[in-house]
Lab assay of single mutants.
Amino acid sequence: AVSDRLIGRKGVVMEAISPQNSALVKVDGETWRATSGTVLDVGEEVSVKAIEGVKLVVEKLE
Rank of each mutant, 00 (worst) to 15 (best):
49 K>Y: 04
19 P>A: 12
27 V>R: 00
41 D>F: 14
14 M>N: 02
55 K>V: 15
38 T>Q: 14
2 V>R: 09
31 T>C: 15
31 T>N: 13
5 R>M: 08
19 P>Q: 11
30 E>V: 08
46 V>A: 01
39 V>D: 12
14 M>H: 04
49 K>Q: 08
10 K>E: 05
31 T>G: 06
37 G>W: 09
34 A>Y: 05
61 L>H: 07
46 V>E: 01
57 V>C: 05
19 P>E: 13
45 E>G: 06
16 A>V: 14
42 V>A: 07
27 V>S: 01
5 R>V: 07
48 V>D: 01
17 I>K: 13
4 D>R: 11
32 W>R: 09
13 V>T: 05
1 A>Q: 12
23 A>N: 06
38 T>C: 13
57 V>R: 06
17 I>Q: 14
1 A>P: 12
2 V>G: 10
46 V>N: 01
62 E>V: 13
12 V>F: 06
36 S>M: 05
61 L>P: 05
59 E>W: 00
50 A>F: 07
10 K>S: 08
25 V>R: 00
5 R>S: 09
57 V>S: 03
44 E>F: 06
24 L>M: 09
1 A>F: 11
30 E>F: 07
6 L>M: 08
20 Q>W: 09
36 S>G: 05
40 L>C: 05
59 E>F: 00
34 A>T: 08
4 D>C: 14
62 E>S: 12
3 S>E: 08
45 E>K: 09
10 K>Q: 08
49 K>W: 00
27 V>L: 06
37 G>K: 13
53 G>A: 03
21 N>Q: 11
35 T>I: 14
46 V>H: 01
8 G>K: 02
29 G>A: 03
9 R>M: 14
14 M>T: 08
29 G>E: 10
19 P>L: 10
21 N>T: 10
52 E>A: 09
53 G>M: 02
21 N>E: 09
5 R>L: 08
49 K>R: 10
62 E>I: 12
14 M>Y: 05
25 V>C: 03
53 G>D: 06
45 E>L: 14
16 A>G: 08
7 I>T: 04
14 M>K: 04
39 V>M: 12
53 G>F: 03
35 T>L: 09
57 V>A: 03
40 L>N: 01
17 I>G: 15
53 G>N: 05
49 K>M: 10
52 E>S: 10
41 D>L: 14
43 G>W: 04
58 V>K: 00
42 V>T: 05
62 E>P: 12
35 T>Y: 07
54 V>D: 15
16 A>P: 11
6 L>A: 03
51 I>F: 05
5 R>C: 11
42 V>S: 04
27 V>E: 00
51 I>D: 02
37 G>F: 11
54 V>Q: 14
50 A>K: 07
22 S>F: 09
45 E>V: 13
5 R>Q: 08
15 E>N: 05
21 N>Y: 11
28 D>R: 00
2 V>I: 13
4 D>H: 13
43 G>F: 04
49 K>H: 06
43 G>A: 03
32 W>M: 09
61 L>M: 09
52 E>Y: 08
39 V>T: 12
42 V>Q: 06
54 V>T: 14
13 V>W: 02
5 R>A: 09
22 S>N: 10
55 K>P: 00
37 G>P: 10
10 K>N: 07
41 D>R: 14
4 D>L: 07
24 L>A: 05
